[in-house]
Measured scan of single mutants.
Amino acid sequence: MSIQHFRVALIPFFAAFCLPVFAHPETLVKVKDAEDQLGARVGYIELDLNSGKILESFRPEERFPMMSTFKVLLCGAVLSRVDAGQEQLGRRIHYSQNDLVEYSPVTEKHLTDGMTVRELCSAAITMSDNTAANLLLTTIGGPKELTAFLHNMGDHVTRLDRWEPELNEAIPNDERDTTMPAAMATTLRKLLTGELLTLASRQQLIDWMEADKVAGPLLRSALPAGWFIADKSGAGERGSRGIIAALGPDGKPSRIVVIYTTGSQATMDERNRQIAEIGASLIKHW
């Protein structure tokens, strides 16, 4: 067993022997301040990774656009098919120029040779490549099948209805392509620590998230040296922004954090800054 596999296998073990965790309302004060600064709703939840206990939450059962955070769930569904012998990570998928959609920095470079399922998941999570996500959605049967996968996990809230990039439209009061912070946090925890996926697939999923290259201005910008984070960000229309993450000190994750916002007129930089400040408060009061 590799060191990384050992780390993920012992996530519940280490967490069980940690000192009790206590909620700190100071972080919620910052979440509410972010709402004021952005002029928009902000949803927040913080779960203990081992027990699933909610440590703090704000608007945990209000719907927010998922945006690209759905790509972690998508690759979880792909990995479940791999575990069941219905898919192979090494299978190569070929596609054409007509398949390319807006923001496809990886797939646009491989029109000639195609990409493997493993490479597509890596591109979808680490670079948020939209064509990679659409190609992977095709392998599982489309958005409705991802929703069905989530329902089978016990998540009857999260739903995907459309493809990239239309799913980022974020129309107010439109339930399409949305989740709730509580539902997303619980589902992410199941994917990373539950028995739904094999140990190898859980490790692969967290490795992809740990290698995320496009979430630097968010929670990662607030992390002290030595902290662990595996995350996936999302951005959408109407001032929408979000991030889902597993993080913790001492090089291992111990909490799940989900943050979503929508309806702001603020710039992307300002949305990023507010999420980073929430992260800084979380870490300060850990």
Rank of each mutant, 00 (worst) to 15 (best):
P25G: 10
L28T: 10
V31M: 09
D33L: 09
E35R: 04
D36V: 12
Q37R: 09
Q37S: 09
V42A: 10
E46T: 14
E46N: 15
S51I: 09
K53W: 13
I54T: 15
L55Q: 12
E56L: 09
F58Q: 11
R59P: 02
R59G: 04
P65A: 12
M67H: 12
T69N: 01
G76W: 05
G76V: 05
A77I: 11
A77Q: 06
A77V: 08
L79V: 11
D83Q: 09
D83F: 02
Q86W: 14
Q88T: 15
G90C: 07
S96A: 10
Q97F: 14
Y103W: 07
K109V: 08
G114L: 04
G114I: 03
V117S: 03
L120E: 00
I125R: 01
T126D: 09
M127Q: 12
M127C: 08
T131E: 04
A132S: 11
N134T: 04
L136Y: 01
L137W: 04
T138D: 11
T139W: 14
G142V: 02
E145N: 07
L146C: 06
T147H: 06
H156V: 09
T158K: 00
T158F: 07
R162G: 08
E164D: 02
E166I: 10
L167A: 10
L167S: 04
D174Y: 02
D174L: 03
D177E: 03
T178A: 05
M180N: 13
M180H: 14
A182I: 07
A182W: 06
A182C: 08
M184G: 00
T187I: 11
R189L: 08
L196R: 12
L196D: 13
L199P: 10
L199R: 09
S201W: 03
R202T: 14
Q203E: 05
Q204P: 03
L205T: 03
I206H: 08
W208E: 03
E210Y: 10
D212Y: 03
G216H: 11
A222F: 10
P224T: 12
A225C: 10
W227K: 00
I229W: 01
D231E: 04
G234I: 00
A235P: 03
G236D: 05
E237W: 14
G239T: 03
S240N: 05
G242D: 00
I244H: 01
L247N: 01
P249D: 11
P249G: 06
D250T: 06
K252C: 10
K252W: 07
S254Y: 06
R255G: 02
R255A: 05
R255F: 02
I259Q: 01
Y260I: 05
Y260N: 03
T261D: 05
T261Q: 13
T261M: 14
S264I: 05
Q265C: 08
Q265H: 07
T267Y: 07
M268P: 10
N272R: 04
N272Y: 01
N272M: 03
E277W: 06
G279E: 03
A280N: 11
L282R: 01
